[in-house]
Design a binder for these strands. Structure first.
Length: 271
DNA sequence: CCGACAACCTGACGGC
DNA sequence: TGCCGTCAGGTTGTCG
């Protein structure tokens, strides 16, 4: 569920409850999710003060004054619930600060993960080492995108989903960015024209910023930690809109399947 | 090296 | 009501 804008929304929502606070208690209700939790996770977090709450790609990062960074991934259905009224099924981890703020990590499908690594080694951590540039960072631009697409036979959509090339995009924002740039998601990367690559390089940060401003997209699971729903789904131009009119030309939006995942696009506008 | 696909899970929804 | 198939904001390993 969560792509870059949703993770950004979640981390911003955790900041007031966590930044500068100390973890008083970390309760693990199971051994792990996608992967086992680190053995000493609770021990290393308990008593540690949070010095930073941030994000890299789709990973939430929490630095502590013990020199550790908590790396959290929400998978498809993960959610952080701030000051939960009651404990729900699938609340797998419970964090409590010494100020009494509680956060439940809820994840029905259990595709999420928690890892802990020395902050100094964050860049070389296996989960993060291979990630491409942040689409909202200074390393991302049209020249970089052109290099990533050059000579590639893979469809444009597959390239944008590849976290090693650009980190943070998922199914929704890839579909939306390709529509804005008028690129057929099935077109080979190497066959995308220069002007369209430039349009894509502009569209990606734009659509992400708009989504962040809207609090992300709440289709099923996503909500900010305080329960506020995102509303960017109201701004979708193609995602989930099969059969509905293209906002640009009114031709019905097409749904296709690429490597097992739904792709939405306009056959007339996107070439 | 590259790309397609299955697998990992639960829950919601539509059709019969 | 129930059962079945399908689908879902992701990642990773395997196979050809």
């Amino acid at each position: 569920m969560p792509e870059l804008p949703e993770v950004e929304t979640v981390m911003r929502g955790l900041t007031p409850a966590w930044l500068g606070q100390r973890f008083a208690r970390v309760q693990l209700n199971r051994d792990g999710l996608r992967r086992p939790f680190p053995e000493d996770l609770g021990q290393r977090l308990t008593g540690a003060r949070v010095t930073a709450v941030h994000r890299r790609a789709k990973y939430g990062l929490v630095d502590t004054d013990r020199g550790d960074t908590l790396i959290l991934h929400l998978g498809m259905s993960g959610r952080m619930r701030l000051d939960p009224i009651e404990i729900l099924k699938h609340d797998h981890v419970l964090f409590e600060t010494d100020a009494g703020r509680r956060v439940a990590f809820n994840d029905p499908r259990r595709f999420g993960s928690l890892d802990l690594t020395p902050t100094g080694q964050i860049a070389t951590h296996p989960l993060l080492a291979g990630l491409g540039p942040e689409p909202l960072g200074t390393d991302f631009n049209a020249a970089m995108l052109a290099r990533a697409f050059a000579g590639r036979a893979a469809p444009a959509k597959a390239l944008l989903l590849d976290q090693r090339l650009i980190a943070g995009l998922g199914n929704i924002y890839v579909c939306e960015a390709l529509f804005r740039a008028r690129i057929d998601p099935r077109r080979a990367g190497g066959a995308v024209s220069r002007p369209r690559l430039a349009a894509l390089a502009a569209a990606i940060p734009l659509v992400l910023e708009e989504a962040i401003a809207a609090g992300g997209s709440s289709l099923r699971d996503h909500a900010a930690p305080d329960g506020t729903l995102g509303y960017f789904q109201a701004g979708f131009e193609v995602y989930g809109r099969e059969g509905q009119p293209c906002p640009a030309c009114t031709r019905p939006i097409t749904r296709t399947v690429q490597s097992g995942r739904s792709t939405f696009h306009c056959e007339r506008c996107q070439k």
